[in-house]
Design a protein around this nucleic acid. Structure first.
Length: 221
DNA sequence: GACCAGGCACATC
DNA sequence: GATGTGCATGGT
């Protein structure tokens, strides 16, 4: 049942919204940087910060490595939490240089589980950021869970309220084909649907998922 | 002017 | 282990 419902949800969202073409970003590094910058922040603000980094020719490992944290913070200011995120970006870049010669290409040969452990050990990289990097920057078949994913899975009876990150990730990974392109599109569609429809209201009129069986009709978050 | 956005670490109980 | 709080800009 779960498997069928997950597949049905994908179909409904894909028919309604069309392909989302995530993740915007020209290089692996840009996607990794974006994953940090978008923490609890609207993507339009992240784009401004990325434009600033590119304009300053600073969206490169060596440049990020050299730059001092205060200077980096000013460039990423539009993304919010800029002092915090500047440190987090430095932590990420330090790891890249300390363990992989500063070249994201060197991550390609590393086992996915090992990479996940290493990413999570970086201060400022939590589950969602680590998995976003694995899926979108490094093409690993990892399902990214975010606040919308949780809301939608709970609202449609796929998991109990209070489920943690790992439970949600396994819900999707164990019931869907192990496919990078599919995971990429599915997560993007969940975020799109969440933004437009999945508010903390009893019903979400217009949402393509509204008429699914098991849809909760009370406020629970 | 309130509220939200593609989280995370840390303090406190 | 659960819950609360700081971090901050820009759009609605």
């Amino acid at each position: 049942m779960t498997r069928e419902t997950l597949t049905e949800i994908y179909g409904l969202l894909h028919d309604f919204f069309g392909p989302q073409n995530w993740w915007p970003g020209e290089t692996r590094l840009e996607i990794m940087v974006g994953a940090i910058l978008t923490q609890n922040t609207n993507w339009t603000n992240v784009e401004k910060a990325i434009v600033n980094l590119k304009s300053a020719a600073c969206l490169k490992p060596e440049a990020l490595r050299r730059m001092d944290t205060a200077q980096l913070a000013q460039l990423i200011r539009p993304a919010g939490y800029y002092n915090l995120k500047a440190k987090r970006l430095k932590n990420l870049v330090d790891w890249l240089f300390d363990d992989y010669g500063g070249d994201p290409a060197n991550l390609e040969s590393v086992d996915t589980e090992q990479l996940r452990v290493e990413l999570l050990a970086i201060k400022g990289v939590g589950c969602e950021t680590a998995d976003s990097i694995l899926l979108y920057a490094l093409d690993r078949p990892v399902f990214v869970v975010d606040a919308y994913t949780a809301r939608i899975a709970i609202r449609h009876g796929l998991i109990e309220p209070g489920a943690d990150y790992e439970q949600l990730r396994l819900l999707f990974e164990s019931n869907l084909p192990d496919d990078v392109r599919f995971f990429n599109e599915y997560h993007a569609l969940l975020v799109r649907a969440g933004k437009e429809f999945c508010k903390t209201k009893a019903r979400c009129p217009g949402c393509p998922l509204e008429e699914l069986p098991h849809t909760l009709d009370f406020e629970y978050f």
